[in-house]
């Protein structure tokens, strides 16, 4: 079950368990661990025509800029327009910011960012081992925020606006993994 779920996540041909573009397993829990994600990434790394980049960063707000710039530079091999580069940077910034302030509650932690290009599609997965999300559907609603005083609640809306597809896997205590895909050059 766990592997099938993760394969579903990584393999674009297998839709996996999607509900409205979000993915869940049958008992509503996120399955898999960092090691397993790594294994899958390692196997996929040598698939012809697919190039993968993985980085691990400390959960620090100053790494938000670093993360989005690295992913933008990685995506440059698809020859994106300036606008597409800005879209990618904004979406990555949203996901990493969520990991820092929500996933790890501004505390210590490691954020893993995996980016892959295959043909003309960029996919980026930002994952954390933080507190997770109780209700993913609610979290993805525009203007919903658990910190409404300082945050606009538009993080997921921005990811959806700037990328073609956004999938969120999360459960309380099991971290959050956000996978975003974007076709470059239309």
């Amino acid at each position: 079950m766990e592997n099938k779920f993760l394969n579903g996540n990584m393999n674009q041909d297998d839709p996996g368990n999607y509900v409205d573009g979000k993915m869940w397993n049958s008992d509503g829990e996120m399955s898999g661990t960092q090691e397993k994600t790594g294994d899958v990434a390692e196997k996929k790394r040598w698939k012809p025509g697919r190039e993968v980049m993985t980085m691990k960063i400390d959960s620090l707000s100053e790494n938000e800029e670093f993360a989005r710039v690295v992913v933008a530079v990685f995506a440059a091999r698809l020859d994106p327009t300036v606008e597409e580069i800005d879209d990618i940077k904004t979406a990555v910034s949203e996901a990493v910011t969520n990991a820092v302030i929500h996933g790890y509650q501004n505390g210590e932690g490691t954020i893993t960012i995996e980016a892959a290009v295959e043909e003309n599609v960029l996919s980026v997965t930002v994952s954390d081992d933080g507190i997770g999300i109780k209700n993913v559907e609610q979290a993805m609603e525009p203007m919903f925020s658990t910190l409404p005083d300082e945050r606009s609640g538009m993080g997921f809306s921005f990811m959806e606006a700037f990328m073609d597809r956004v999938e969120v896997i999360s459960a309380p205590g099991k971290g959050t993994s956000v996978t975003m895909r974007k076709k470059i050059g239309r």
């Binding site: 910011t97 300082e150 921005f158």
Partner: peptide
């Protein structure tokens, strides 16, 4: 040159 939803949050506030 760059802005994300954090900027929107402070503008709206």
């Amino acid at each position: 040159t760059f802005m994300d939803s954090s900027g929107i949050g402070i503008l709206l506030n």
